[in-house]
Design a protein around this nucleic acid. Structure first.
Lengths: 125, 125
DNA sequence: TATTGTCAACGAACACATTCGTACTTAAAT
DNA sequence: ATTTAAGTACGAATGTGTTCGTTGACAATA
């Protein structure tokens, strides 16, 4: 019964996961087409096979053309990656990370408002 | 005249950079001692030599015992890493990243206050 | 039926990260 | 002067990520 902690997705893994998150369960060809960039078909296939071994995706093999699905929800993976970066590069300081995130890309006024709401919720609790 | 874009530091690189950022210019031995974890002396040395080639650190070779310094300031590297993660896993949405950062680790009341100040500053401008 | 296209599987090649042992050099201690 | 300690340099081994060519199975088409 495989129930090991999932490994951190690599850059290649993430480019595939992004497609699965946005489009839902997909075939290799669909993913490959969406990834119009330089990678060949068999490269995408190989990556998906490895990701299956790692547990990052699951696949339906009942038909000849396999169908892949992301094993974890987008938010769950994002949370893991943020937590990882927090430990490795920010000494655990969420504040510093937030600062850099806000200054590295100009957030819109709506986004800032949204973040304020989140802060309110966190202080209430 | 090497002036190429610096590569993204690996996990090993970051563990060393953290020491250099907090303690300033250091020798291999000092870094190795601070990294009390399982890595051997020559491993740290090798990593530093590679990091020198990559341009992540510079070294003073005038004495027998070399002295290493981080090439980039902590904030600069952090900004790069955040921007990287933003592209690769968040579709460029700084808001989502901030949300995850705040929820993945409970921020203190002071930190939340600090973030509010930052939001104020960003809205003024 | 014969040919052509689509798919998964596999292995090989290359690059990079990580680790450490060994060799060589230089300084310090005996 | 000899030995010991501390340092750098240099491979070598291993693991992982990434890429793609080739093979074989199967389906669709001519």
């Amino acid at each position: 019964m495989e129930n090991l902690p999932l490994p951190r997705p690599t850059d290649g893994d993430l480019s595939i996961l992004r497609v699965l998150w946005s489009d839902g369960a997909s075939t290799v060809r669909e993913i490959h087409d969406k990834l119009n960039g330089g990678t060949g078909y068999t490269t995408v296939l190989k990556l998906l096979q490895i990701m299956t071994d790692k547990g990052l995706v699951t696949r339906d093999v009942s038909a000849r053309t396999h169908i892949y699905t992301a094993a974890l929800a987008e938010e769950q993976t994002q949370r893991q990656l943020v937590s990882d970066l927090l430990d490795k590069a920010f000494g655990g300081s969420a504040e510093k990370l937030v600062m850099q995130a806000l200054s590295s890309k100009k957030a819109s006024r709506e986004e800032l408002q949204q973040i304020r709401k989140l802060l309110d919720q966190m202080e209430e609790k």
